[in-house]
Design a binder for these strands. Structure first.
Length: 588
RNA sequence: GGCCCCGUAGCUCAGUUGGAUAGAGCAGCAGCCUUCUAAGCUGAAGGUCCCAGGUUCGAAUCCUGGCGGGGUCGCCA
């Protein structure tokens, strides 16, 4: 159950009564009504702005209207008190019997608590990583990878039909560079001394295995043929190996996208789709022959160099882009933008209503055109949502980690995962808003201390597991079985700290919905941190006040209620951690 | 120059899509403490939410204009 959805319905029922008695007009707009928890717990458990939002259409002051609403709400058994406060807020204090009821329901749902159908099975495509298949993933890819994966998890949890996708940029000039670089390694594998890698080729030694594999497969046969003949062969071979490597890198973070779409297959030379797509676009009136002004950012010299010619343009400016964009280069081949269009159309035809693109912040200039393209090719039926992830800065003990891009010296994703583990990487990448830069310190993130949120949250989960181990040891497996816990009396949870935690548990379903709607996985991370914090606080209270401990040997019924309560917390921690892709450990 | 993002406590950051007296964690201050799992606990203090207007019952949040920081900007990928 969703606490807030439940009471929103209660409030709306009361408003319905007021419509019947003509206090409110029939066409009153309820859409701006919020039912949420107040910032300050002293204001009660649930608050709504209904009276303030509807005062004008009702022709009353907010407080007058609020009085009428509270009179109705007070009749509800689950509401102990309803009062008007401030400019016209209605604050509800729930009956003390309500929280135990919520705990019991959450217990029954177990790991499914928080799951909902608010997405209504809407088809959503989440595209993330999509790195060029020219080398291993580096740290820069890491954040988007984790972000996209966690976002997909959240959307699934609240009832969207999600496809995780990787777009392979295997059609441009950079894969030819890859092929030439791999060919050099091939010659090296055959015994040639290649010396320094020439400027413009990829220097990384991750291509040496590609050279070796080429040798194994082709012997020296590729040495004697012209580049036009070996290049396509080497290219496809190298791309396949690079993709395998990338998949392995992603697997180290437990990321497994189900669809890998190749740019070549969408619009490459071999594809016949290109013409079809152009025909479709023409039919929709989206392309025309025309000229573009030189961009203002060009220098005088570059401006003189600008080739002012008629070309095939896409009408993206009519769909929100800054300018129309070329589809065909002067050499007759298609632009990268053309493949964006083709790919957007491809996605649309696969039936998604929402396409999420997770990109690095350096792609911020592409947001408008992606949105415009999707709007254009779908006729406004699908929307593109672009999420930008800011850079990750690496530190070690407070000192920035130096890397130089030109020697191919970059920190790979794999190196980071191998050093600190996937749990730490995944949690830390989500413990910041996506559009804020992120500092990642190798030493701090592995520290086992309160300052480290990864540890802090996992530790809460592990602590609960440890209480259960103790309980089993003390009372035996049967005495604390699931059935016994289910039958326990949740009304025995009466301490303020326990109730406060139950209230937070009650917020969880709504939190997931909000995280999904705003595409903000970090909210889950912060929620878990807060929940863990409250749990640790309760634990500490038990040190001072033994009667608050979870296991009270002298009082079995209280013990059972508290164990059931702990289990609910554990469900939520485990559920949230799994959404983030972090392993809920049982021991530390 | 155009566009995008950011600006909140000394530091690092949240802020429930416009709600009430703006919150955490560090650091600093004052006490306590030897554990149901140790990686401590409690409390107090800390603010011109970058600035100036605007929108309305109500703005850190939305709009306009500035200031400061970052990113990006031809047929590259």
């Amino acid at each position: 159950m969703n606490l807030f959805a439940h009471f929103k319905a209660v409030v709306e029922a009361a408003l319905g009564e007021l419509v019947k008695t003509n206090v409110l007009p029939k066409d009153a707009d309820f859409s701006r009504i919020a039912v949420e928890s107040p910032r300050d717990a002293a204001h009660g458990d649930i608050t709504t702005n209904a009276a303030m939002v509807l005062a004008k259409p009702a022709g009353q002051t907010p407080r007058q209207l609020a009085e009428m609403i509270t009179d109705l709400l007070q009749q509800d058994d689950e509401i102990e008190a309803a009062e008007v406060a401030g400019p016209g807020f209605i604050n509800l204090r729930l009956a003390s019997s309500f929280w135990p009821k919520l705990a019991a329901e959450a217990f029954k749902l177990g790991d499914d608590y928080g799951r909902s159908q608010t997405g209504g099975g809407e088809r959503v495509n989440v595209e993330y990583v999509s790195a060029n298949p020219t080398g291993p993933l580096h740290v820069g890819h890491c954040r988007g990878a984790v972000f996209g994966d966690a976002l997909a998890n959240i959307l699934q949890t609240v009832g969207y039909d999600v496809v995780r996708e990787y777009y392979i940029n295997d059609a441009g000039a950079q894969v030819d560079v890859l092929a030439r670089s791999a060919y050099l390694r091939y010659r090296e594998a055959l015994g040639e001394t290649i010396g320094e890698i020439p400027e413009g080729l990829y220097p990384g030694d991750y291509l040496m295995p590609v050279g070796e594999a080429l040798k194994t497969q082709h012997g020296d046969a590729l040495l004697s043929v012209a580049e036009t003949d070996w290049l396509p062969v080497v290219r496809e071979f190298a791309i396949a190996m690079m993709l395998d490597m990338i998949r392995d890198d992603l697997a180290s973070l437990n990321i497994h996208q189900e669809v890998f779409t190749s740019e070549q297959s969408v619009h490459g030379e071999a594809s016949t789709k290109v013409k079809d797509i152009l025909d479709v676009l023409r039919a929709k009136g989206l392309v025309y022959e025309g000229r573009l002004e030189p961009p203002k950012s060009l220098s005088e010299a570059e401006r003189n160099d600008w080739e002012n010619r008629d070309q095939l343009l896409f009408r993206s400016s009519e769909h929100g882009d800054d300018t129309d964009r070329p589809l065909v280069k002067s050499d007759g081949s298609f632009t990268y933008f053309a493949s964006d269009v083709a790919y957007a159309l491809d996605k649309f035809e696969r039936g998604f209503s929402q396409m999420i693109y997770v990109l690095g912040a350096d792609h911020s200039g592409y947001v408008k055109r992606l949105e415009a393209v999707m709007h254009a090719v779908s006729g406004g039926q699908s929307r593109a949502v672009v999420k930008l992830c800011q850079l990750v800065k690496l530190f070690r003990g407070g000192e920035p980690v130096k890397m130089s891009k030109r020697a191919g010296e970059f920190v790979t994703l794999r190196e980071v995962v191998d050093e600190v583990g996937p749990d730490v990487v995944r949690f830390m990448m989500l413990y910041r808003k996506n559009e804020a830069p992120l500092d990642f310190d190798f030493e701090k993130v592995t520290e086992q201390s309160r300052e480290n949120p990864v540890f802090y949250v996992q530790y809460a989960h592990a602590r609960i597991c440890s209480v259960f181990r103790n309980a089993v040891q003390e009372f035996g497996e049967d005495a604390v079985s699931v059935d016994k816990l289910l039958a326990s009396d949740f009304n025995l949870l009466q301490d303020d700290a326990e109730i406060a935690i139950l209230k937070r548990i009650g917020e969880y379903p709504k939190l997931l919905e909000a995280a999904a709607a705003s595409h903000e996985p970090h909210r889950v991370a912060f929620y878990l941190y807060d929940l863990a914090s409250e749990f640790h606080g309760l634990w500490n209270k038990g040190k001072e006040s033994p009667q608050l401990r979870f296991i009270l040997a002298s009082c079995m019924h209280v013990t059972l209620a508290r164990l059931a309560f702990l289990r609910v917390i554990r469900y939520v921690l485990g559920n949230g951690l799994r959404i983030m892709g972090v392993n809920p450990v049982e021991e530390m």
